[in-house]
Design a protein around this nucleic acid. Structure first.
Lengths: 253, 253
DNA sequence: GCTTGACTCTGACGTTACGTCAGGGTTGAG
DNA sequence: CTCAACCCTGACGTAACGTCAGAGTCAAGC
């Protein structure tokens, strides 16, 4: 009973390394008694403590915090666990995105040995898409966010790609038509395309449209890399031209 | 065109910190040109490289490896990605276990402020159960493993707890009955309980039983902490007694 | 008593991807 | 010339140990 263990034995008993025990000792997490020569001596009751440490560590809780939990005594453990769960769930979200990005890239470049740059571009695309979603969140109301979550499911990277291309094309076409009459047939055709594409994302939902408008007006505060990515769409004349075309359409009613 | 950027600008353009750019520079991941005074100068084409770095980093690939990927040129990126996906999936498995353990603990200790030691015990239980599953895998054939995966779904921590308790109780009862006649009514009753409990885990499947037997016979090679946890079941006399009782049962047929 | 092998101790450096000073040049405006 | 705003490098810190390295300890065999 009340047997004594040397580090090696105790470490094996608990399934950890000797060095880890040294570490916990120095951090004050588990301080064994010592022989006269300075050898560490562990009792069986130390095992319980060690198991708790290992368990909390498994949950991703840093050692310093574990020490605090022990130190502050009983209260607060369940509080720490609630917090830790949120942390872990956030980590899982990121992991899922990363795995998803790789999957998309593999899907998009079948066994064929596409040039690696294509794979990378695909990944960047997927990540940026997720990133945009995340960043632009703050412009939408809670309700609008929920609606976007819904629509997101339809937003495969392929769609995203096609959609980007269509906007780019349309913008270029409008740019080329800047000299025309905003009420003319050509301008009206472009305006129709514009409207249709816009509805592809907003679904015509007024809350989403409102968010988009808010986002657009906040342009000066966008992070630099967003401004950079939006640069192709930065031609003020194009926006004004389309405004006029819409106005002309309305006036024609 | 071909605009030049100072670190700060370039960092904001890409959404990273200046210090990160210093870091990538020193690691040889992205080496900008310099002014005479030693200031870093980035070109727009550096942005592409940087975006690739950020993307691969997002996938959890260490910087050194990213450098190697660039260095070894085109081939091998998709290979790296396949590997990385496996790494990430393994991480997700661990994350899920951790989250699961916390959930179980929260479920088992409802809002009531149970002593924290109870919460910790619960977590340790859940983790050890997963750990056991993992460790004991090697004793089972592929088929048996698949079958166990199936049965695992029924194995809530509550069941696990009850099961452990019943085995402990049964073992204690047998120990108390060691003096009796193995063919007697009392011994036969115990043998029946034994058999029933055993089937609770094996489901009577011969492959699982075989794995269990293999595991039991390999006892000397179990890790120390498993031996420690199995210590309450280490009374050889009990096993022999039960063997005799089974034999007597068969002989009575 | 001495050697030997198996253990144990502590201290120091390495790992990862930067963050955070600290001390010291550079540049452009007034 | 000065001042603010940038830029540079180097050094230390972070988390949880792993990996030596140099040195002491213990029990056994000769």
């Amino acid at each position: 009973m009340s047997q004594l263990y040397h580090v090696r034995e105790f470490a094996e008993l608990a399934g950890v390394t000797v060095r880890a025990l040294h570490h916990y000792d120095r951090l004050g997490l588990l301080k064994p008694s010592r022989t006269e020569a300075g050898y560490r001596l562990y009792y069986l009751r130390d095992l319980e403590r060690l198991e708790q440490i290992v368990a909390l560590k498994f949950l991703g809780i840093p050692l310093k915090q574990i020490r605090m939990m022990f130190h502050r005594g009983a209260n607060g453990i369940s509080e720490s666990l609630r917090m830790q769960r949120r942390v872990l769930e956030e980590k899982r979200r990121l992991l899922d995105s990363a795995i998803g990005a790789i999957e998309e890239a593999e899907k998009a470049t079948p066994s064929g040995n596409r040039p690696d740059s294509a794979i990378l571009r695909k990944i960047i695309e997927v990540i940026e898409m997720q990133d945009n979603m995340d960043w632009s969140k703050k412009y939408y109301s809670e309700e609008a966010q929920a609606k976007i979550e819904e629509r997101k499911k339809l937003w495969s990277p392929e769609n995203q790609e096609r959609w980007t291309k269509e906007w780019t094309d349309l913008f270029r076409d409008v740019e080329a038509a800047l000299g025309e009459d905003p009420a003319g047939a050509k301008a009206q055709g472009l305006a129709a395309r514009w409207k249709k594409l816009g509805e592809g994302f907003t679904g015509g939902d007024p809350q989403i449209i409102a968010g988009l408008r808010k986002m657009y007006q906040d342009r000066p505060n966008w992070p630099a890399h967003m401004q950079h990515r939006m640069q192709p769409f930065n031609n003020k004349n194009v926006w004004e031209f389309i405004q006029k075309a819409f106005a002309a359409d309305k006036a024609a009613d």
